[in-house]
């Protein structure tokens, strides 16, 4: 969070609406009767939500790129770990 800059109120409102919609999409996708698609949609929605939080709520879009990459890297690594386990289960099943 950079004290010299501030995300606009409009950006925060749009981000919040997007976060709500992505959360609803996550639940709906989880109920799809399909082997592969729910996992892909749910993980992509999770990554999009993480990006919105990091860039807009945390205000890291224009801040130190190292911290931004660290904050964005964490959800990517988590999504990879969750995704690999999920798709490995699909393959084994």
């Amino acid at each position: 969070m950079a004290s010299h800059a501030s995300v606009s109120r409009k950006t925060l409102v749009v981000s919040w609406v997007a976060l709500v919609l992505l959360s609803v999409i996550t639940v709906m996708a989880g109920q799809f009767d399909h082997r592969l698609l729910p996992g892909v949609i749910v993980l992509l929605a999770g990554l999009a939500k993480a990006w919105l939080i990091v860039d807009h709520f945390m205000e890291l879009r224009q801040a130190h790129q190292g911290w931004r990459l660290a904050m964005l890297g964490w959800p990517v690594v988590m999504a990879l770990a969750i995704g690999l386990a999920f798709f490995w289960r699909l393959g084994a099943g």
């Binding site: 959360s23 989880g30 996992g39 929605a45 999770g46 939500k49 993480a50 939080i53 969750i82």
Partner: peptide
């Protein structure tokens, strides 16, 4: 945001 799909959704 990462816990929610892992614990509740990804079945």
């Amino acid at each position: 945001v990462m816990l929610f799909p892992l614990v509740y959704v990804l079945n």
